[in-house]
Simulated assay, not measured.
Amino acid sequence: MNITLFYHSILSDWNHGNAHFLRGIVRELEERGHQVQVFEPENGWSLQNLVEGYGKEKLDELQAYYPGISTNFYTLKSINLDEVLANADLVLVHEWNEHELVKRIGAHRANGGKYKLLFHDTHHRAVTERESMAKYELTHYDGVLAFGQKIRDLYLQEGWTRKAWTWHEAADTSVFYPHERKDFEGDLVWIGNWGDEERTAELHEFLINPVKELGLKAKIYGVRYPEHARKALADAGIEYGGWLPNYKAAGEFAKYKVTVHVPRRPYVEALPGIPTIRPFEAMACGIPLISSPWDDAENLFTPGEDFLVARNGEEMKAHLQTIINQPEKAKEVAARGLETIRNRHTCAHRVNELEKVCQELGITESKIYLTQKEQILNEE
């Protein structure tokens, strides 16, 4: 297939977790012989912040982990959809795009576009910013890919689309896999952004306070940490590492004994079944994971076996002591989580699901499932 993707960015993961999943999906599609083009806005906020804070050399570093990764920059004023979509079989448009772009691509599809057109939602804004999401004009789209059943159902209930599929995120196991562990540099590592005060109390209860009270050696990576957050980390004796390129996370996980997952409040309260990308990646790296409460309503994992669940701060402290002081238990939890990821939650699994959606939409099977000979010819 010729596949065109409109996303906020594939080059930058600065405060932009969707890039993690997108990179793995693009690589998997290309390995199967599909022709993939990504379009992202010129001067997008994530890439701007990355370059301003860390320099363009980070884009060169990305190539070492994702050889050949590329994008096409556009502006709403200059983009020529007739040219961009001339040969497309499948077009995916992400929910972080401008309303105007979403509308124009839909209009292009209605005016003779031969491709199948899907909207891709990977955020909680369908619940928390419903008015804004309702303004997306999806009349001429063939359906929605939603990263959780609850969001999929909402699109259908609100009449925003006629068809919708659940398409969870997953781990890109070409980058997220267990690295050799030698000497640990500390006890706990956490990778995550502070995030609009959506989990401030939870971060104190399940992360900062337990580390402080147990006297653990810990390091935290992420962006958008306000002054009060950095002060709290320093007070707890936690080292703050700033932004960490996502593709380096696996190497960091290998230096520590445990990590935790602290979901944002909208996912816990209004969107059960959506773990977001971080726990997929942590488990794929073979590090034991302890999570604050979230409802695995879609049975993605086996809580208590793939990862441990702490219902409150005291349970988090108890679980941390268990993992740190009982190496065999730590290995058992890590192995179960890794096994579940490899069996069910890789980008290859998600591309399999996408191919079934394409088949349901009526795309010719010979385009969806390329023969080995066709894949070789495409690579040449």
Rank of each mutant, 00 (worst) to 15 (best):
M1D: 01
L5M: 15
F6E: 03
D13F: 01
G17H: 02
A19M: 08
V36G: 06
V38R: 00
E42P: 00
E42W: 13
Q48K: 14
L50T: 13
G53F: 08
K58C: 04
Q63V: 12
Y66V: 09
K77P: 00
D89I: 03
L92Y: 02
E95D: 15
W96E: 09
W96Q: 12
E98C: 03
R104G: 01
G112R: 13
G113T: 08
F119D: 05
D121I: 06
H123R: 12
V127C: 03
Y136G: 00
Y136H: 14
H140C: 07
D142T: 12
G143C: 05
L154S: 11
Y155K: 02
G159S: 11
A164C: 13
W167L: 15
A171M: 11
F176P: 00
F176G: 00
Y177P: 01
H179T: 10
R181W: 00
K182M: 09
D183Q: 14
E185N: 14
I191A: 10
G192E: 13
L203R: 14
F206N: 10
P210I: 14
G215F: 14
L216G: 08
A218P: 06
I220D: 05
Y221R: 02
V223C: 07
Y225T: 11
G237M: 13
I238Q: 02
E239F: 00
W243R: 01
W243V: 03
K248T: 04
A250E: 03
A250T: 04
E252L: 05
K255F: 09
Y256E: 08
T259I: 04
P263S: 10
R264C: 06
A270E: 15
L271P: 00
G273A: 13
T276G: 02
T276D: 03
I277M: 03
P279W: 07
L289C: 11
S292T: 07
S292H: 04
A297C: 05
E305C: 00
R311V: 14
G313Q: 07
E314F: 09
E315Y: 05
E315L: 05
E328L: 14
A334K: 02
R344S: 15
H345C: 07
A348E: 13
R350N: 09
L354F: 05
G362S: 07
Y369L: 07
T371H: 01
E380F: 10
